[in-house]
Amino acid sequence: MRLGSMALSMSIALLLAGCQRAEAPRGEAAPAVVATAPVEPLGAAGLGLSGTVRARVEAPLAFQVGGRIAARRVDAGQSVQAGQVLLELDPSDLEQAVRAAEADAAAAEAALRTAQADLERVRALAAQGFVSTQATDRAQLATREATARRDAAQARLAQVRNGRAYAQLRAPAAGVVTDVTGQPGQVVAAGQPVATLAQAGAREVEVFFPDTVAPPAAGQARLPDGRTVALALREAAPMVDTLARTRRARYRADGLPPELPLGSVVTTQFALPGPGTTAPADGASSVATWRVPVGALDERAEGPRVWRVRDGKLEAVPVRVLRMDDRHAVVAAPLQAGERVVALGTHLLQPGMTVQERAQ
């Protein structure tokens, strides 16, 4: 019995000692293994986008009066001259309105002549002392009223005659009809667009930029035949399209050949600032432009960032995304050549984490 008790006590002591030795290494966690990639500095970064050839003036056309479309004289893509008839309304109601206005004008003219004749008779009687001065004043006021009614009737007649002329929609300038939405038999209201005219003359290139890129002041367009044309910014949309997340810009392109059709797609190239010349939006000191793996971007915080590895520790570096594709992103950030950033799994990282690099 004594020997059994001693053996049991020694077994318990050895078991406790083993547990203490096993718990000792748990005080310090092993560093996480992360895949890293070096940042690649860029020179003067170039942004290539597709642009569309547009006319400087593209005006939607509409009738100034309402009615039913009786005829369509042009098709989309057709060149027209100034004053050429594009569409016509049924003039029946407009003709009746003219006749009614002519009758009103004739009646007003007759009423004026009657009032003038009455005024002459009253004046003659007043000279002989047969009527009072009050009767003369009434006759003069009636003549003035008849004159005003005649003038109003003539103004209405001129208005309805203009409306009859508005039954024909004419091209305000020479150009190309890019779209026709009005069809014969369709009833349209005054001011409802029925066609679009791209006026002849100056042409431009329309480009849509990502919302993170401000439209540059200049660039160049490469035509289908290989020639290049200089671009100069004329206007840029003040707001970003909320659906497409793009910003529209129009560029003057004086060297576009006249045989290049409107709507043609050209390749545009714009120079973006390179390292040390990209100014952040808040006006702080300039930062460089780098290319990083698209998986290195982390957008959990208030803005996009990447995770830089320094001395085995993680640091979050805010970045400004300039453009990206399915593999890489071009960012403006205060990074240095030769530094490495975490390329995958950024959603699991925290500032100050101890990591072990595994080059990608």
Score class of each variant (00 low, 15 high):
11 S>N: 08
17 A>K: 08
17 A>D: 12
17 A>P: 02
18 G>Y: 07
18 G>F: 08
19 C>E: 01
21 R>G: 12
23 E>P: 02
25 P>K: 04
25 P>I: 00
28 E>R: 02
28 E>V: 10
29 A>K: 07
30 A>C: 06
32 A>Y: 13
32 A>E: 15
32 A>L: 10
35 A>G: 12
35 A>H: 13
35 A>R: 15
35 A>L: 11
35 A>Q: 14
38 P>H: 00
38 P>N: 11
45 A>F: 06
46 G>K: 13
47 L>Y: 04
48 G>P: 02
51 G>I: 01
51 G>Y: 04
52 T>E: 14
55 A>R: 05
57 V>G: 08
57 V>W: 12
58 E>L: 13
59 A>V: 15
60 P>Q: 10
60 P>I: 03
60 P>E: 13
64 Q>F: 09
65 V>R: 12
65 V>F: 07
67 G>Y: 15
67 G>W: 09
68 R>T: 14
69 I>P: 03
71 A>D: 02
74 V>P: 02
76 A>F: 00
76 A>L: 00
76 A>Q: 00
77 G>V: 01
77 G>Q: 01
81 Q>M: 15
81 Q>P: 02
81 Q>E: 15
82 A>D: 08
85 V>M: 02
88 E>T: 10
89 L>Y: 04
89 L>M: 05
90 D>G: 02
92 S>C: 08
93 D>R: 15
93 D>G: 08
94 L>V: 10
98 V>P: 06
98 V>A: 05
100 A>L: 11
101 A>I: 11
101 A>T: 07
101 A>R: 00
103 A>W: 09
104 D>K: 06
104 D>G: 05
106 A>C: 01
